[in-house]
Write a protein that binds this DNA or RNA. Structure first.
Lengths: 345, 345
DNA sequence: GCGCGTATCCAAAGCGGTTTGGAATATCCG
DNA sequence: CGGATATTCCAAACCGCTTTGGATACGCGC
């Protein structure tokens, strides 16, 4: 319930026009007056009303992040938290607000329409794109600036996105394992309709092919990335007649599960078996130190959030600056979880 | 970019007044007209502009969640994600927007002042209260409805909060371990300035005292709750001359770390040693099944988010409904990680 | 001293809704 | 049928800000 511009103006014996201009740095006001106004504004703890301002300017000064949560498995992907933390930092510095929508992926399209029609935000961040995702098309049609965290293969028309090089990462990781003599490599992936999962699988398959190893469907798993999923998968696979000697995990959480599943059976990663995981550098699951626990394809999702926010803000400021895209490479970090394939006895 | 009320009214040959009233359910409009208006609104995909509406009504229809992120350790507490998912669901159904502020805890108070002075939101959710926390006092002074997720011991005046019974939970857990014959029980807690950590420690200490066990400072640890913290702590403590036979962890993440630290040394939880953890029911770390992996004090943080949002909305609707408080009890769930204390040899 | 450009300020019209205070029409009753 | 009472609709003010299009005063050169 702060002071209004009108009140501030009255208390200074000036018009609202002049006060507004003084505060917003317009040239039509004398230096002396500007100083007087600015001081008074601080003294009165004046902050312009966001709604009035954006109604007048037509800019909402806000970005929406729409987080899909499927009612079926109710999983909140933990990478959202860190991504959003990164993005939020950027918004704060730019005077933008972040509005978050948790939305059932059934009525997702309605959420976007609504957001745009009501003029709540100037731009939209799209999370968790699937291989076939109608959102990109919808948002293009709606004509609102948007940026996708990830990509979707179903769309040919250009759009803005930021992504890590999933295919290359998993290609490298797989190749690394092959070079170590592994020939039975399991892929413990995320949900199969997620775009990142498909790209990672492609990288994996290509590397296998290059190494002359025929892929085995039994070794390729897809599911929501929980810790127990890793655990269960490790124990199932290890009991195969021809078990894998190496595992490729799509997230640290899954990798932890794998590790636990294996070590509960007396199998030690790095010695008996190899694990490589993708590491988003989540703050509470650091995989660092002199020798990180896991060999990993590493890329900070928090950093991605920062970049994404910067890109989207640029897009909002000048939509004509065209589709912006950024493909971030990951680094392959050597940790303690990999080693040469055990020699067949 | 949607249709405006004025345009819609013109297309119907009515005044904006009538259209507004028809859509908002006021009685001064005939049933026939209302029907005609509503249909036209749907056909034209009309959604009232949020900013204009809230400027006119004085209500922002939005709630702020302020997430403190200390620049020093940059940890994003993973419970935020699930809490927010729960709250967001409620807001969606009530037509409220959720605005998220990621804020360096240094300039936190400025964030609150700003949010209120600009009239961006109608209410504020306070996350991560510390034992001594000036935010409650600040927000009371600012006169904005707010609700704290957790409590702060430094404030005597009444305020609204929702919390789990941390003290009782850890009292019960400790007592349970004592009943099993454990006398060396480690507490692997969160940061010592967090209010929840203090309450848990109090519960722990009281139970020890009741059991006639003198507390040992060496067994009481405080730090940011990461997995490696659990790992490190487990390995440090196990090497003491008089090592603990049981561990009490403040989060699943820490418990995973403990487990890994112990099993790497060949110590098996549930047989050689006991672990009880608090379980927030994070979606990607489920601790369920016939026999959950960890014995735990369980309480869904997502459910807490829902309740919290409902309470805050009630507070916004009628501030005079006074401070609202809710203390949620946890359930002590028996899992595979506990057992009787090993007999001294 | 006059005309002109410039510096400084202001009145008023939006932005897109809601809401107050009528006005016009329909309904009712004696 | 006339006047009182509902019913139904509308014009205009307002929410708090920005911004266009002047108005006023000042300094300057001639």
């Amino acid at each position: 319930m702060g002071v209004t511009l009108k009140q501030l103006a009255a208390s200074l014996g000036l018009s609202p026009t002049t006060v507004s201009r003084a505060l917003n740095g317009f040239p039509e006001v004398s230096a002396a007056t500007r100083k007087r106004v600015k001081e008074a504004a601080i003294r009165a703890n004046y902050h312009p009303n966001t709604r009035a301002k954006s109604l007048a300017t037509g800019r909402a000064q806000a970005i929406a992040h729409v987080i899909p949560v499927s009612t079926s498995h109710e999983i909140v992907n933990p990478v959202f938290a860190d991504f959003i933390a990164g993005a939020g930092e950027v918004y704060s510095h730019s005077g933008f607000e972040m509005v978050l929508r948790i939305v059932d992926d059934a009525d997702e399209s309605q959420a976007y329409r609504d957001l745009v029609a009501r003029g709540t935000v100037d731009g939209v961040m799209v999370h968790g794109p699937r291989t076939h995702d109608s959102r990109v098309e919808l948002l293009s049609k709606l004509g609102v600036p948007f940026l996708v965290h990830g990509r979707t293969s179903s769309v040919n028309a250009p759009y803005s996105w930021i992504d890590i090089n999933n295919q290359r990462s998993f290609h490298r990781a797989t190749q690394f394992l092959c070079d170590f003599g592994h020939r039975r490599i399991a892929l413990v992936n995320g949900m199969s309709d997620m775009d990142f999962a498909v790209r990672r699988r492609n990288g994996y398959l290509q590397a296998l092919e290059a190494a002359g190893i025929p892929p085995d469907p039994v070794l390729m798993r897809h599911a929501e990335m929980t810790e127990p999923y890793g655990y269960r998968t490790a124990q199932e696979l290890i009991q195969l007649p021809d078990p894998p000697t190496a595992y490729l995990a799509s997230s640290m959480i899954v990798a932890y599960g794998l590790r636990r599943g294996l070590s509960d059976l007396g199998v030690t990663p790095g010695r008996d078996i190899s694990i490589i995981t993708h590491d988003d550098e989540l703050s509470y699951l650091p995989n660092d130190g002199d020798v990180p626990m896991f060999t990993a394809t590493r890329s900070s999702v928090r950093e991605a959030g920062k970049r994404a926010a910067q890109m989207l803000l640029k897009l909002v400021a000048s939509p004509e600056s065209g589709p912006l895209t950024e493909l971030m490479e990951t680094s392959l970090v050597l940790g303690a979880s990999t080693g040469p394939a055990p020699v067949r006895s």
